[in-house]
Simulated assay, not measured.
Amino acid sequence: MPLTIAPASTDHLDAWAELRADLWPGETVAEHRAEAAGMLEGEERAFVAIADGRVVGFAEAALRHDYVNGCDTSPVVFLEGVYVRPAARRGGVAQALTEAVAAWGRAEGCSEFASDAEIDNVDSHAFHLGAGFEETERVVYFRKAL
């Protein structure tokens, strides 16, 4: 399957929003579309993977200037999310998307690339390790109402 990785644009909003809703089902497609449209105006970056004229995946990233767990430098390019349609998986799409994010981070002066995953999301852990990330730490957050 010939694959193109491109910066996300308004042309990709509908497909990108549908994929976001698959990854993060807590919001509607319309809410995801509005959030994605806002990203196009901000400092975050998104890339889409296109195969056979169809958006089959996306990656979203940000430059984080605050402390990033496991990193020593600032800013750090941070992978906020990556998703590939199930039918397009196992073909290097997610790897190509993360390579586009890494290239953007390097161009912005970053020397570290970070990400995170839920502690029980072993599929995400396997993806990250396969993409060249190394696990740095595990954290459980707590809160107490006052």
Rank of each mutant, 00 (worst) to 15 (best):
V93M: 04
A114F: 00
A145D: 09
R89I: 07
A117E: 08
R85L: 10
N69V: 10
R138K: 02
V56S: 00
A102S: 12
N69W: 13
A6M: 03
A145T: 13
A59C: 09
D52Q: 12
E112N: 06
H12F: 06
A21I: 07
F58C: 01
L129S: 14
H32W: 13
T73M: 04
E137Y: 01
E44I: 00
Y141C: 04
G132M: 09
D14C: 01
A8P: 05
P7I: 01
W16C: 02
M39A: 06
L63F: 00
L146H: 08
G92K: 06
S124I: 03
F127A: 15
T4P: 00
C110S: 06
L23T: 07
S111K: 02
M39K: 10
S115H: 05
F133W: 09
F142H: 11
T28R: 10
Y141S: 11
A94W: 01
R45H: 12
C110L: 09
E137Q: 12
A100C: 09
D72H: 11
G81W: 06
D22C: 15
D123A: 15
C110Q: 09
R33I: 03
G53R: 08
D123Q: 14
L40Y: 03
A36Y: 06
D123P: 11
T28N: 10
E60D: 14
L146F: 13
G109T: 05
E135K: 13
V56F: 05
T98I: 14
E80G: 14
A96Y: 00
A107C: 02
V122C: 04
D72C: 07
R85S: 00
N69L: 14
E80P: 03
R85M: 05
A88R: 04
G53K: 06
D14N: 11
E43M: 09
L19N: 06
W16I: 03
D120T: 12
E134F: 04
E43T: 14
D116N: 14
A126N: 11
E18F: 03
M1T: 11
A61F: 05
G81C: 04
R54T: 15
Y141P: 10
G130L: 08
V101M: 09
A96S: 14
A51E: 06
A88V: 03
A17S: 09
Q95E: 05
R45T: 13
T4E: 12
A107Q: 13
V56I: 00
I50D: 05
G91N: 10
A87R: 09
G92P: 06
A103C: 05
A8Y: 00
D66H: 14
A96W: 00
L79I: 05
H32P: 08
R90C: 05
D66V: 06
T10G: 15
E31D: 14
R54A: 14
A94S: 11
D11M: 08
R45Q: 14
V76R: 06
E44Q: 13
F58Y: 11
I5W: 05
P7K: 12
S124G: 11
G109L: 07
S74A: 15
L129I: 13
G26L: 02
A102K: 13
L129R: 15
V93S: 09
